[in-house]
Simulated assay, not measured.
Amino acid sequence: MENQGRRSWPLWTAAWPGVGGRIRERLEDFEVEEVAAYEPCGQGEHLFLWVEKRGVGSEYLLRAVAQCLGIPVGAVGAAGLKDRYAITRQWLSVPQECAERLGRLEALHAEGIYLLRVARHRNKLKPGHLRGNRFCIFIRGASAAAPWQAILEKIRREGLPNYYGPQRFGREGSTLALGWQCLRGQLRRRLRPFQFRLALSAVQSHLFNDYLARRQEDGLLHTALEGDVMAHWPVGGLFRVEDVAAEQRRLEAREIVPAGPMFGTRTYPAAGVAARREADVLRSYDLTPAVFAGFGQLLSGTRRHNLIYLDDLQAEWEAEGLRLRFTLPAGSYATVLLREVMKNDAVEAVPPDEAEEE
């Protein structure tokens, strides 16, 4: 049987029991609002549409808007694809010639799609044109007797390991299993391009999680290593650690964070001790860097923050449970935070991703 590696990751707040509870019992229990990389400037050849969807998948949203406006689905721009089982708000873009047809979108109200605002901008919205997502999540049936303050305080003080959430890998790991078949040339059926990309990316995500878990288990999440690849926080370029003591001070000041590998053909290379640790991850799966060649841009590779900081993490108790409010960078998973707070099977049962990243 092929090596698919571990299926769970260490908790960051394992010293305390969670609050338990349930999520997503109602759509309004899970709200997500996109934090744009930039605001529309008010002029240009593109219309930016601030849209709310309720219980609607992202692919369906794009198709429905395109069909209503009489344009190809590829003409609808989006910075990121949002959760289906939630109330979400985000920007879409369409060509300016759609302006006189925007009234048609009222027909989508019956399907849970609402146009809230319109503005003009110079460019089409493209994947990645967002800073992050703002969440408001209600945990029903949570226990106020649990040490929830200690859990949240550790996360506020020390940050949160930036694991991929369980939905990234499909129900019972089905997307990941498919990805291993794709990577190793064992796939016996043709996949849609979207499925193929998602499956391969699940393997990259799994390898990153394994790398991050090893680092956490070795007590190295807040340690600069020789040859580490660092990223400026919250945004900025990459560089390799040469002066360990100097970069350790910057890491402790939250100026930089280690950036782990999304393995691929052009992943920014680590060196020294850090490079050997990354090579050990691949070796444990009987992989070499050469396995990522031949997939073009799909496995070009990148780097991902090992840690994220939640400066606006808030919690308040209501009659039926605990409400959390926080903002995550693009690509980070709310379910990773919920797993730390709840510590039960409810998080593991969330629906699989529709998109590569939230």
Rank of each mutant, 00 (worst) to 15 (best):
H121K: 05
I137V: 09
G44H: 01
N133C: 11
Q67N: 12
E158Y: 06
A66I: 10
P166W: 03
G55Q: 07
F48E: 00
N162I: 09
P161G: 02
L81H: 05
L61I: 06
R101T: 15
T175C: 10
E106F: 14
V94E: 01
E111I: 09
F138D: 04
L130D: 00
H129A: 09
G103S: 11
R156H: 08
K53V: 05
T175Q: 13
L49C: 03
G173A: 06
R140N: 08
E106Q: 10
N162R: 08
P72L: 07
V118C: 08
R122T: 15
G55E: 09
K124S: 06
K53P: 01
Q90K: 05
A78C: 12
S93D: 04
Q149W: 14
I155K: 05
E52M: 14
C98D: 01
V51P: 00
R131Q: 14
G170N: 07
Y114C: 11
N123I: 13
W148R: 08
R101I: 15
L105Q: 05
H46D: 02
G80C: 11
L49A: 00
R157S: 09
C41I: 14
G112A: 05
L61C: 04
P161Y: 05
A144Y: 11
F138N: 11
H46G: 04
A142V: 05
R122D: 11
G170K: 03
F48S: 03
E106D: 13
K154L: 13
P72N: 04
A144G: 11
I87G: 01
V51M: 10
P40S: 03
R104E: 10
A75S: 13
G57C: 08
P95C: 12
A64V: 05
V118F: 04
L125Q: 05
A144S: 15
R131W: 13
L69M: 08
S58F: 14
G57F: 04
R101G: 14
Y164R: 02
S174N: 14
Q149C: 12
K82D: 02
F138H: 10
L92R: 05
G80T: 06
R117P: 10
P147M: 02
Y163D: 02
P95E: 10
V94R: 00
L160K: 02
P166E: 04
G179Q: 02
L105C: 06
G128N: 13
G42T: 07
L69N: 00
P127L: 09
